[in-house]
């Protein structure tokens, strides 16, 4: 059993969102970086749990990013995983990123590829689905349970009106969300071990971007809250009806 977990570096959830260079670039000054929560809490931890059940499992982590992504990938290795691959590209075009990962996936021949359901910075939710097209593999999105039985996986996924259980023969790509695993905190032993785990750097394959960010902007701020007397809920209902026109 060989698992590839896709890891993305994202700003901490409390990071101040601001832009520089004429609003063309995210302002990284003072920003703390974290492993994208969905990648860490659900995809990576589920892979680790599978390895705990079957120690013969091999877990590789892959990230597409510059040198500054290495501290994030080491953090991920401290939680678990056998080795990591950093593809040396700073593209933020989803297709380019998926295309790079697909190259690594083809070479590594994995039984299972796990991603988070989306990243909390660009919220594109593209990589798993794109990998499915690039590698011609089945894709199950928004999974919250994953069990293995030999070469067959049983996966629960969210659908519009509830939850569906699917069976799929490996290899498969799964995007993970809440419920998949319990969040973990790295321990000292993990942190020490991560220092010596192999981190392979590969040059990016040629891939041309299909999209480019031309400019960012921020939503207009609210004009200020109107406070309503807690004894006068008729007033609030009236405002929602007549002023906001939402009920």
């Amino acid at each position: 059993m060989k698992i590839l977990v896709c890891i993305s570096k994202t700003p901490d959830t409390t990071a101040k969102i601001a832009f520089i260079e004429g609003n063309t670039k995210f302002d990284e000054s003072g920003v703390q970086w974290i492993i994208n929560p969905y990648d860490e809490w659900y995809a990576l931890v589920r892979a680790i749990e599978l390895k705990e059940k079957d120690p013969a499992t091999i877990i590789h982590l892959v990230t597409v990013g510059g040198v500054d992504a290495e501290s994030i990938i080491r953090k991920a290795l401290a939680l678990g995983g056998d080795e990591a691959i950093r593809i040396d590209s700073t593209s933020n075009d989803s297709f380019t990123i998926a295309d790079q990962i697909a190259q690594v996936a083809k070479e590594g021949v994995y039984d299972l590829i796990l991603t988070g359901k989306e990243t909390i910075d660009y919220n594109s939710a593209c990589i798993g689905s794109m990998l499915s097209a690039l590698l011609d593999l089945p894709f199950i999105s928004l999974a919250d349970h994953f069990e293995l039985n030999g070469n067959t996986a049983t996966v629960k996924r969210e659908i519009e009106s509830g939850v569906e259980t699917c069976e799929v023969t490996l290899p498969v790509i799964v995007s993970c969300q809440k419920g998949m695993a319990e969040q973990r905190i790295p321990n000292m032993r993990g942190i020490m071990a991560a220092r010596t785990k192999p981190l392979k750097i590969v040059a990016p394959a040629v891939s041309s971007a299909t999209t480019n960010i031309s400019q960012f902007d921020l939503p207009p701020s609210k004009s200020g809250v109107k406070l309503i007397d807690p004894e006068n809920m008729d007033e609030l209902v009236k405002l929602l009806k007549e002023e906001a026109k939402v009920i």
Binding site: P11, I17, N212, S214, Q215, F216
Partner: peptide, 19 residues
């Protein structure tokens, strides 16, 4: 150029589509 929400709704990005 298509506008999309980024940073979970905290900002917008205008994306130029090249294809």
């Amino acid at each position: 150029v298509v506008r999309k929400t980024v940073f979970s709704g905290k900002a917008f990005a205008n994306i130029k589509m090249e294809t």
